[in-house]
Amino acid sequence: MINETALLESRTLRSDILEHTDALDRVKALSLLPDGMHVTTAMVATYFQVTAEAVRQLTKRHREELESNGMTVLRGADLREFESDNMSLSLASYPQARRSLTIYSRRAVLNVAMLLRDSEVARQVRVYLLDMEHLARTQPVENPSPTDTSAQDARIDQRITHILGRTVVPMFNALIATSGEHRRELIELRTDIENVERKLCWHHKRLATLEGDTPADDVRAKLKAMTWQAFEHHVADLLRRDGCVDVVVRQARTDRGIDITGRTADGRTVAVQCKNRSGRSTVPSADMQKFAGAARAIDHVDVALFVATCNFSHESQAVAKLSGVVTVNREELEAWSAGVLLKALQ
């Protein structure tokens, strides 16, 4: 089992478990800026119950690692734009003449937790991560062999997965939306159920592979055959499957680049742009700029998704990163359609 000292000293070990950002909220609620994605140095210090100077010194020592995991220093026009979208926090806490602002993604905050030695909160996060890593390593993995009953097992897995995705998870979403003091417990229970659903999807995929089927090709073919209207409804169904509520497909010419709206189970607003393009075409930066402007500047949504059946140009990816738009390219869309949960919605 990996020990805490090894985690503090090995960047490779830290990288292996940086996806588990849910560990932050399992230990203590992490408050975010109005954009729903970032925190400032002062907010990181408050979460870990240390001084802001301690966080700044750690940032200097591990700048390259933290920047690779979502820490960004904003200056100039980028800083002014970010502050205009987060006025309520920035004006109350910082001087007007500020020249730069360091912000951290949830992944970067988790990275800090694995580097910060003199914080009890950071230690608790590391303990939680190590416990989860130990369970993942020690849990027995079954290796099913193709038998006469494998097809029947696959049908059972699909039926159970359908029941979990269509009934149990939506039930928990409804309870979470109306609950008060038990909200955290309900979210944890829903996560456990989603993990079961994910394992069943994995099990079904292995059985299909052993039997010679190619699920990925089937998903790809279905997406390719969709009209743009059918594609938007498909994405809306994926949103609902992942727990979103009040999902509306606009399908109007006056949508300002927003095709679908909704809310996540925890109340965050969602806006989606869908692009159904075949061949080797890519999403140009102009389309991304239009959507980012509508989602961020006009509607001020919490989660902005750009979903495409193709890939994104380098310019459009740069615009998405700068404006906080989550891109879902062809490969990610196929995985999402095959049953993988979209992390941006969790």
Rank of each mutant, 00 (worst) to 15 (best):
A292H: 03
L305M: 07
Q273N: 12
D246I: 00
D242L: 05
M288T: 08
V248P: 04
S316K: 05
S316P: 09
H314A: 15
R280K: 12
C244A: 11
R277L: 13
V247S: 10
T282D: 05
A320T: 03
G257A: 05
V326R: 13
C274F: 04
V249F: 04
V319L: 14
F291L: 00
N276P: 06
A271C: 06
A304G: 02
R256V: 04
I258H: 04
A318R: 15
V326K: 09
H300I: 14
I298H: 10
I260S: 07
A252E: 11
D299F: 04
D242K: 06
L322Q: 15
Q317D: 12
D259I: 02
A320S: 10
P284Y: 05
R277P: 01
S285Y: 04
V325H: 01
Q289M: 11
C274V: 03
R250T: 06
D299Q: 11
N276W: 15
T261P: 09
V319K: 12
G262M: 04
G324C: 06
S313F: 04
C310A: 15
R250M: 14
V326T: 12
T269Q: 11
Q289C: 04
S323W: 10
R241C: 14
D299W: 08
R296L: 10
K321E: 13
T309W: 00
G279Y: 01
S278H: 08
F291R: 00
V245D: 03
T282W: 01
V247H: 13
V303F: 03
D242F: 06
T269V: 05
V247Y: 12
S316Q: 05
D299G: 02
R256N: 13
A295T: 01
R253I: 04
V283R: 05
V283N: 09
S278P: 08
V307H: 12
T309S: 09
R253A: 14
G279E: 02
T269E: 12
A297K: 14
D266E: 10
D255A: 15
Q251G: 13
G267P: 14
S278T: 09
Q317M: 13
H314P: 09
R253E: 13
V283H: 07
E315F: 12
R263N: 14
D302K: 07
A320C: 07
H300A: 15
G324A: 02
D242I: 02
V319S: 14
A265M: 10
A265T: 14
K290A: 11
V319Q: 14
N311A: 05
F291D: 00
V325N: 00
A308E: 01
K321W: 03
A252K: 13
T254F: 15
N276Q: 14
Q273K: 09
A252Q: 11
V270S: 06
S316Y: 03
V307R: 11
C310M: 12
I298P: 01
V303W: 01
V326N: 11
S281K: 12
D255N: 15
D287S: 08
I260Q: 08
R253C: 07
R263I: 03
R268D: 02
R268N: 03
G243K: 00
A320N: 06
V248Y: 07
R277K: 10
G267I: 08
G262P: 09
G243I: 00
S316L: 07
G293T: 09
A294S: 14
I260C: 12
G257F: 05
V283L: 08
V307W: 09
T261E: 15
A265N: 07
K321Y: 05
A286V: 10
V303C: 01
Q251Y: 13
K321D: 06
A286D: 14
T309C: 09
D287F: 06
E315N: 15
R241S: 13
